[in-house]
Structures are given as structure tokens and as C-alpha cells.
Simulated scan of single mutants.
Amino acid sequence: MRVREDVVVGRTVDVVEVGPTDARLRWWIDRDGSPRRLELHTGAGVWAQLDLHPAVVPRLPPVPRPAATPRPRTH
């Protein structure tokens, strides 16, 4: 459900709310469709907030695979 229009870091966003009453999430989504903020309604009746900033994620080096160990033969 759309809650309202707001502004985050100079960008217009739509605030939408999803989920049941006791576990609501609010997404702040800019007009390009990018999430800008996530809010979680806690059990204590407080909103926990996480601001999201678009950025280039660096490529991580591949995780080395362990050397294969031969299986013992069973007869």
C-alpha cells in the first residue's frame, strides 16, 4: 500500500508499506525504482531504519576450491 510521497537525499520517493500489521516493512523507492530506505516495524512499536545508497560493488576475488582428495576404495 502506498503511504505517501517524501524526499530522501534530494530525490522524490514513494513510501510503500507491505506485510501484516505486526511485521510491517516500509520501502522508500525513488522514481527510477531504486530502493532508498527500508524501515521495519519492531515489536516494541518502534521503526528501525536502514538507508540505502547506490554504489558500484567491487568484484571480489574467487574463493579457492579445496584440492580434491581421492576416495578410499572399498571392495
Results as ranks from 00 to 15, higher is better:
Pro61Tyr: 07
Pro70Val: 10
Arg24Ala: 11
Arg36Tyr: 01
Arg31Cys: 00
Thr69His: 09
Arg24Phe: 00
Ser34His: 01
Ala48Asn: 05
Thr69Leu: 12
Trp28Thr: 04
Val9Tyr: 10
Pro20Asn: 11
Gly19Cys: 12
Gly19Ala: 09
Gln49Arg: 14
Trp47Cys: 08
Ser34Val: 05
Gly33Asp: 01
Arg59Ala: 12
Arg4Phe: 10
Gly33Thr: 00
Val7Lys: 13
Ser34Asp: 06
Val56Gly: 02
Leu52Phe: 07
Ala68Gln: 11
Gly43Phe: 05
Asp32Gln: 04
Asp30Pro: 01
Val13Gln: 05
Arg31Lys: 06
Ile29Cys: 00
Thr12Phe: 09
Arg59Glu: 10
Ala23Thr: 06
Arg65Leu: 14
Pro20Phe: 07
Thr74Arg: 07
Ala44Gly: 09
Pro58Ile: 03
Arg2Thr: 15
Gly33Ile: 00
Glu5Gln: 14
Leu50Ile: 09
Pro54Phe: 00
Pro35Asp: 01
Arg31Leu: 04
Arg59His: 05
Asp30Tyr: 01
Glu39Ile: 03
Gly33Arg: 01
Val46Ile: 14
Pro61Glu: 09
Thr69Cys: 05
Val3Pro: 11
Ile29His: 00
Ala67Arg: 13
Pro58His: 02
Val63Trp: 10
Val8Ile: 15
Val3Ala: 15
Asp6Pro: 10
Arg37Tyr: 02
Arg71Ile: 04
Arg11Phe: 03
Met1Phe: 14
Trp28Glu: 02
Pro66Glu: 14
Val8Trp: 10
Asp14Gln: 12
Val13Leu: 09
Glu5Asn: 15
Pro62Phe: 06
Gly10Arg: 08
Gly19Pro: 11
Val63Tyr: 09
Pro72Thr: 06
Val57Phe: 04
Ser34Cys: 01
Asp22Glu: 14
Asp30Val: 01
Pro61Asp: 09
Ala67Glu: 14
Asp30Gly: 00
Val63Gln: 13
Arg71Phe: 04
Val8Glu: 14
Val3Lys: 15
Ala55Thr: 08
Glu17Met: 15
Leu52Trp: 03
Leu60Ile: 07
Leu40Phe: 09
Thr69Asp: 08
Val7Tyr: 11
Arg59Met: 05
Trp28Leu: 02
Leu50Phe: 13
Thr69Gly: 05
Val3Tyr: 14
Val8His: 11
Pro64Cys: 07
